[in-house]
Nucleic acid binder design. Structure first.
Length: 286
DNA sequence: ACGAAGCCCTGCAAGC
DNA sequence: TGCTTGCAGGGCTTCG
């Protein structure tokens, strides 16, 4: 069995898994998981955002994987008797490794498949989560109040316009609220607001319907092109073909505070908004 | 009810 | 060189 490393984290070039990264991981893992049976589970370090259930192995083992879905940034590993709900937090990653490869420092969980591959959950900062859910995962407390998928039917300018009325918070905070729309993290919120020409600190309730139309289109565009290119954190993965990530090169504002705007040349301004790094162009974003 | 702040955690970079 | 300090951030939780 060749050491098929589908996604393997590389230390030192850390970026946060956002929706495109989670979706890329899902698509990459899918063909190696579907229909395979979980032989055994090793919980090496149960300390994550919430403790990994002690009986996770007992719940999971012996069952075939029937699905791998995504809700926001949560991955849902479907089994006949329940669902394993995973979140990568800020530093989590899933890799497929040969089951003989010994675990590293932050490898919390191994899920060994009957194919000989091992689905390994690694998370240095432990903001991630691995939980066992019985019944409909959509009804789970962590999922039931989530807003629509940004790439789904429900999400558009009219939707944003309607639910933003009378809201005084900054539009960037509004956009990053998972009850408004899921999966828009700090990086892509910055990028989408730049693309939509909207200043991050503007009150959400004071933005017009047409401008929300532009913003919704920008969110969709930014996420779709990131998924297309394999997600920002592809540079953190050594894919099956060893191709490094490159999407970071196409980030227009995030991480570019003080540098010239790629549209007009003015120095990009960097502020803190909801305690998150916020970069925008004072010329292009009003 | 809404919105802001707090907190969890480790790796890395900068400063001394 | 080796310490200390600050920063990064998703998102649940608590506070105002």
């Amino acid at each position: 069995m060749r050491a098929l490393t589908c996604f393997r984290s590389r230390i030192g070039e850390h970026t946060v898994p956002e929706l495109p990264e989670v979706e890329t991981t899902r698509r990459g893992l899918m063909p190696h998981l579907l229909g395979k049976t979980l032989r055994h589970i090793v919980v090496r370090n149960p300390r994550l955002r919430w403790p990994v259930p002690e009986d996770l192995g007992k719940r999971m083992s012996g069952q075939p994987v029937t699905g791998l879905e995504r809700r926001g940034k949560y991955l849902l590993l479907g089994l006949p008797k329940g669902t394993v709900m995973l979140h990568l937090g800020m530093s989590g990653s899933l890799s497929l490794v040969d089951s003989k490869i010994p675990p590293g420092k932050h490898d919390h969980i191994d899920m060994v498949l009957d194919s000989g591959l091992n689905l390994r959950f690694n998370d240095p900062r432990r903001f991630g989560a691995v939980l066992w859910v019985e019944g409909d995962p959509a009804e789970h407390a962590l999922l039931r109040h989530l807003g629509p998928e940004p790439l789904g039917e429900e999400f558009d300018g009219d939707y944003l316009y309607h639910i933003s009325r009378k809201r005084k918070q900054a539009v960037k905070s509004f956009l990053m609220d998972s009850q408004v729309v899921v999966g828009v993290g700090n990086i892509y919120a910055n990028e989408a607001l730049f693309m939509g020409g909207i200043r991050p600190g503007s009150q959400a309730g004071r933005i017009s319907r047409p401008r929300y139309g532009l913003l919704a289109q920008a969110v969709i565009k930014v996420l779709e092109s990131a998924i297309e290119q394999g997600g920002t954190t592809l540079r953190d993965f050594v894919g099956g073909d060893g191709r490094p990530g490159y999407f970071k090169q196409s980030l227009q504002v995030y991480g570019r505070g003080g540098l010239p705007c790629l549209n007009c040349g003015a120095a990009l301004k960097e502020i803190r908004l909801s305690n998150r790094s916020t970069v925008y162009c004072v010329q292009c974003q009003r």
